[in-house]
């Protein structure tokens, strides 16, 4: 579904990603794990069009992303739940969700998708006229995921959905990711909660200092000594 080949990217003259090649198949859930500053967020931004890559090839279902302006990437079925959620804090939950369906390809299904989001998060339905910025972190994360779903995506990019949340809520976020998988979405997720994310994904890539240094099935990585030492403090 998603294919990256030799992607280099960064900010100005600073290069954050070096020669990244990865792929995500339809129906898969894949994680990218790595320490702070490794370039995980940059990778997500490059895929969704927020940051332009220096070079390299990116394809979504065979279509080259570079042939689309950034705001049309979402129309290809890629939705990005950004780091720190980035809701519109002064707007209602429902307005936030509505903006998720701004793309022309999403509008015809927006009523159906809204119903699905409310079924997935009954909490959002209760709070639909509340200002997004006044909700708790966990609720904001639900809203951010809901907003991404409103675009009717095939692939969900999630950048550290559990960051900054209380432990109980972190559990909820991971069971949510599982639920989203079951609904048939393909997922590419960035996490620092390595142990937990490896329980919900099929495969993972290890990113360090802008380079992919390893990849493998979650099961194998969970058992790998180097991963356990480096990321789980075991």
């Amino acid at each position: 579904m998603l294919d990256l080949k030799g992607v280099n990217a960064g900010y100005g003259s600073f290069q954050a990603l070096f020669d990244i090649s990865l792929n995500v198949k339809a129906g898969e859930a894949v994680a990218v794990i790595g320490p702070n500053g490794a370039g995980k967020t940059t990778l997500m931004r490059v895929i969704s069009g927020m940051t332009e890559p220096f070079s390299g090839e990116m394809e979504m279902e065979g279509k080259s992303l570079s042939s689309f302006p950034p705001h049309q990437i979402v129309e290809l079925g890629i939705a990005h739940v950004p780091e720190n959620r980035r809701l519109f804090p002064g707007m209602s939950v429902e307005d936030n969700l509505k903006l998720g369906a701004f793309a022309k390809t999403a509008r015809s299904d927006s009523a159906k998708n809204l119903e699905f989001v409310y079924e997935l998060f009954p909490r959002m339905k209760e709070r639909r006229s509340q200002l997004a910025g006044t909700m708790s972190g966990g609720e904001q994360q639900m809203c951010a995921i809901g907003r991404a779903i409103m675009s009717g995506p095939k692939l969900l990019l999630m950048d550290e959905p559990s960051a900054g949340l209380a432990p109980v809520v972190v559990q909820q976020v991971f069971s949510l990711v599982r639920r989203i998988r079951e609904e048939g979405y393909t997922v590419l997720i960035v996490e620092q909660n390595v142990q937990q994310v490896l329980q919900v994904v099929d495969r993972a890539y290890l990113l360090e200092a802008g380079q992919l240094i390893d990849s493998g099935k979650s099961k194998d990585l969970l058992e790998s000594d180097s991963v356990r030492k480096a990321y789980m403090g075991l």
């Binding site: 979402v74 939705a79 804090p89 707007m91 307005d95 998720g100 701004f102 907003r147």
Partner: peptide, 18 residues
């Protein structure tokens, strides 16, 4: 809605397809 949103987070608008 996009007009109201854009002043709150300009960068993220592209993710909304705006």
């Amino acid at each position: 809605a996009a007009i109201r949103a854009i002043s709150q987070d300009r960068e993220i608008m592209v993710l909304m397809g705006v």
